[in-house]
C-alpha cells in the first residue's frame, strides 16, 4: 500500500467520524463508560497487587534461639538453616538489637521498656527470608524441628490469608476486566454495524467500481480506532485527576505502613496509556467484526 493510500484511509476514517453524527457519540459513549470501569478496576487491582507484594516481601521468619545455646551451637544452627533449600538469607540479630527494634517500633510507649536494657528477657534471633514468600510456611516448620530453636514465628495466619486473598483478587479482577472489554467490543461493533448497515449500499457501489475489500475496510479500522481513542479521553482525565486526588488525600490522612499507593508518576501515566491502548484495540476489533459480513457483494 502506498503512503498516499494510507493517508487517504486516515482522511476517510476521520471524515466518517463526523459524517456519522450521533452514531459516533453512541459508540464513544459505550467505550467511555467501559474504560472508566476498566480503569478503576485496574487501578485498584494493580495497587492491591503492589501492596500484597510489599507485604509478601516483608514476610520473614523469626527463629528464636534457646537462651541456653552457647556460641558454637548458635553458629551451627545458622549453618543448618542456610542449608535448607529455598532460603534466601539468614541474618543473626542479638537480643540487644531485638530490644532496640522493639523499643523503636513502640514509640513513646517503648520508653518504659528501656528498664529492661540491663536485664534483657528477649532471645537471640535468626531472621530468615525465603526466596519465594509462598515457601515461608514449610521452611518455618523445618526450622522448628532443629535443636536449640525455642520457637518460630512468621505471622502464620496473616500470611496464609494474604496469599489466598491475593489469588482470588487477581482472578476476579481479571475476569471482570475481560468481561467489560468484551461488552465494550460488542457495543462498539454493534454501533459500527449500524453505521455500516446505513452504508451497505455505498459499500456495494465501491465494490462495483473496483475497490478491494481491504481498501473498503481500512477507513473503518481507522474509524474504529479513533472511536476507541476518543472514548478513552474522559477515562484518562478521570484517572489522572482522580488518582492524584486519592493518592494525595491517602498520603495525608492514613499512615498505615503497607497502605502505600503506587506513585502517581509514572503509574497514572502508564495506566492512561494502557487505557488508550485498550480503547484503540476495542475500536479496531469492533470494526473488524462488523465490517466482515458487509463485504460479500
Amino acid at each position: 500500500m502506498k503512503v498516499n493510500t494510507i493517508k487517504r484511509h486516515f482522511r476517510e476514517g476521520f471524515k466518517n467520524i463526523f459524517r456519522n453524527g450521533w452514531m459516533t457519540v453512541a459508540a464513544v459513549g459505550a467505550v467511555t463508560v467501559t474504560l472508566i470501569l476498566v480503569a478503576a478496576f485496574l487501578a485498584l487491582m494493580l495497587n492491591l497487587n503492589e501492596m500484597a507484594k510489599n507485604i509478601e516481601d516483608d514476610v520473614e521468619i523469626n527463629a528464636l534461639i534457646e537462651i541456653t545455646a552457647d556460641e558454637d551451637e548458635i553458629v551451627a544452627l545458622g549453618d543448618q538453616i542456610e542449608q535448607i533449600s529455598g532460603v534466601e538469607s539468614v541474618a543473626f540479630s542479638s537480643n540487644d538489637e531485638e530490644l532496640d527494634k522493639l523499643i523503636e517500633s513502640m514509640g513513646e510507649a517503648g520508653e518504659s521498656w528501656q528498664l529492661f536494657e540491663q536485664d534483657n528477657p528477649l532471645n537471640h534471633v535468626y531472621i530468615v527470608r525465603a526466596e519465594n514468600p509462598a515457601d515461608t510456611a514449610p521452611i518455618a516448620e523445618e526450622i522448628q524441628t532443629f535443636d536449640n530453636v525455642h520457637d518460630v514465628n512468621y505471622g502464620q495466619d496473616v500470611v496464609q490469608r494474604l496469599f489466598e486473598f491475593n489469588k482470588y483478587a487477581r482472578t476476579i479482577g481479571l475476569v471482570l476486566i475481560v468481561g467489560l472489554i468484551f461488552t465494550a467490543t460488542f457495543l462498539i461493533s454493534n454501533t459500527i454495524k449500524l453505521t455500516i448497515m446505513a452504508r451497505s449500499k455505498e459499500i456495494g457501489i465501491m465494490k462495483l467500481v473496483g475497490a478491494t475489500n481491504n481498501f473498503i475496510r481500512w477507513p473503518f479500522f481507522i474509524e474504529g480506532m479513533l472511536l476507541g481513542i476518543l472514548g478513552s479521553l474522559l477515562p484518562i482525565a478521570i484517572v489522572l485527576g482522580g488518582y492524584s486526588y486519592i493518592s494525595n488525600s491517602i498520603a495525608k490522612s492514613l499512615s498505615l505502613p503497607f497502605v502505600e499507593l503506587l506513585p502517581f508518576n509514572p503509574f497514572a501515566w502508564q495506566l492512561s496509556l494502557l487505557i488508550m491502548g485498550i480503547g484503540a484495540l476495542i475500536g479496531v476489533w469492533g470494526s473488524v467484526m462488523s465490517v466482515r459480513k458487509f463485504l460479500k457483494v
Binding site: K2, T5, R8, E202, I205, M206, V209, G210, A211, T212
Partner: peptide, 20 residues
C-alpha cells in the same frame, strides 16, 4: 450509483484512489 456523501469530484477520484 454515485456515492451520496461524496462530492462530484470525490466520486470520480474514488476510482483512481482505488488504483493508487
Amino acid at each position: 450509483k454515485l456515492l451520496p456523501k461524496l462530492s462530484v469530484y470525490e466520486n470520480i477520484a474514488f476510482t483512481l484512489e482505488v488504483i493508487e
